[in-house]
Design a protein around this nucleic acid. Structure first.
Lengths: 195, 195, 195, 195
DNA sequence: TTCTAACCGAGACGGTACGTCCTGTCTTCGT
DNA sequence: ACGAAGACAGGACGTACCGTCTCGGTTAGAA
């Protein structure tokens, strides 16, 4: 059926990629029930090849998501906190609509599988760290004067992101990113007041 | 098996309660896969009795969650924005640890079932309205001066709540509630004082 | 998909019959690989319904075969050994061509599954007993004079049957039945004449 | 894993033998499901080495069996039919208990694979010819006078052998061989009486 | 008081997906 | 060139659940 050749007794990278791509595609097309068989078929791969390298369906979906998320990994450093936040949140939010069903699908799986949740939590932690780095830089520049705990700030940012992603009641567009960046910057640099 | 008597040709309220309680219990004990059969067995009920009154498994779980959530529905009105926020968030956060697996379980189901998601979203919207009411009251008292969109504020609050509930990387205790209340109050009334 | 109705919480006899019929049909049509899924589909039944009542695929096939074999269960009693043998073997051989693939399929499964073999052996033993009854009657009529062990006679008869059934190198027709009946009758009553 | 050295670019006879031996061993140990992987592992050989020399798993098993069967290939010629039959059947039956699971395993494979069945049938035909030779010699000596068709006699003999081998309900010992030899000799030499 | 209709516990049903196992093919790398 | 190793596509296995259906029994209220 498939034309892709074996690679012998070593892992077939092409097959791995095909699987991740198929998983991402299926999550993107929100035709709800993503089955392993469907992933395998779309990738032109035997189910066993999936289970050889991933412990469960959820793990595949997670990998597919992380792989995409890592393509958009900005770490802006403009010298200004508010500008940095705007850039970070804009790029983060900007990627969201496309990968919404991806993230949501993964979240769904993770909620039912501890191991997957662990990995998803690790991913979330990495994203938090990226944001914390921006805040740290601002602090070392003396741009942070407020008393707001950094963790609260960070969790507000990603919380709003996930919350809107899950419920979809409000857009995750550039305007939303800018609004959020502004209030967070204000929270941190409340002293600047004259503003 | 069960001692509960039939009620003849009328709906058996005890059975309904037993079902909701069983569903809540199963979600609380995070033994992952909640099956309809398991709920029925634990409630001492036939599966059909569940499907007679609810359209799907998810609907049962959702009902179980909402029922609990409504027990804690504070609408504080102290005359001071920060105090109101503290109370609201404290009571909201305070209920969270207990019903964490409940909410998370429902979320899981909702992510895989549009009808359930709709109902869950409605629940979330109701909670947002409760918070918006507090903010509206503060605005009519002239305590809100910032230009930040109220929707952003609301989503910051509930976003942080859900985000921490999902990933559990940080506690949802009174301190967290107060921290969040403070930064949000400051954000809304930043100009009040010359400060 | 299927129109056959449930029978509630009791076993559905129609489904059972449909399964056995489907199994027999599939074995009859020598389209080699008989899968449980295929039996289920042809019977308009879920796989689980098969596994609910039979422990393995082999058991289903065995049941299907036994059910058919029991439809042809002659026990002739003409008063003459050779005539009885001819009738018994004719009817036994006569059924063989039709159910050849049935028996052969079951044998195949039985050779790989101890429990099935046990049941098949029980079936074979029952057939031997039927033949032994004929011989016993003849002996009580004084028509058996040879000293050859009866077990050998019985195994010669069924041995030839199975041997030809398996290898198919020679027909199992009426002539074959008569030939065998004659030599066995002669072997048992060798003295009757001059001897 | 294996100590046997490669032989470079020439066929490794030791590997072939190891494969046949492993196959025979696995069939002897009636641990039911004989897989190609298991044979390869036990022989310390790659699966491909098996498929390089045999077209299918069944073919390997068949080879293993035939190899053993050919070690016992008697063609007695004592000048007396009954004595010849006794020898032939004694040696044939004598080999049976050892290779019972071997033959039965091969039969199992053959019943599911036409090509293997063809080869197994050829083997069975060769055995029949060996017996027919004995009978022919007896006829040319004028020791065969009965009207029993030779094919019927031959199929009774091997039929009883396979039948008992499959079902194991009665021993295949020397006594069984002698009993059978006697009745078959009687069937053929019915002339003994005036008849 | 008797009848009837809706409800109940129970669990079999058709169906979908799971994750495992095995076959026979293919490729790598070492001998 | 051949061997051991093992990844690969494919497909059947037997299990778990879903949501539907029927059974036989119970109870309430209408006749």
């Amino acid at each position: 059926m498939t034309q892709r050749p074996h690679t012998g007794s070593r892992r077939n990278e092409e097959a791995e990629l095909a699987i991740l791509r198929a998983a991402a595609d299926l999550m993107a097309s929100d035709a709800a029930p993503i089955t392993v068989g469907a992933i395998a078929e779309r990738a032109g791969v035997g189910k066993q090849t999936i289970y050889r390298w991933w412990p469960s369906k959820s793990a595949v979906l997670l990998d597919a998501m992380i792989r995409r998320a890592e393509e958009v990994a900005p770490d802006p450093d403009t010298g200004d906190l508010r500008a940095d936040l705007r850039r970070f949140l804009r790029s983060t939010f900007g990627a969201a609509p496309d990968s919404r069903s991806l993230l949501v699908g993964v979240l769904r799986e993770a909620l039912g599988d501890a191991a997957t949740m662990e990995r998803l939590a690790a991913f979330a932690a990495a994203r938090r760290e990226a944001l914390e780095q921006i805040l740290d830089r601002a602090r070392s520049r003396g741009q942070v004067s407020g008393s707001a705990p950094l963790e609260t700030v960070v969790d507000q940012a990603f919380g709003l992101l996930w919350y809107r992603m899950i419920f979809g009641h409000r857009p995750l567009d550039e305007r939303a990113a800018d609004d959020l960046a502004d209030v967070l910057a204000a929270q941190l640099g409340a002293n600047r007041k004259g503003r």
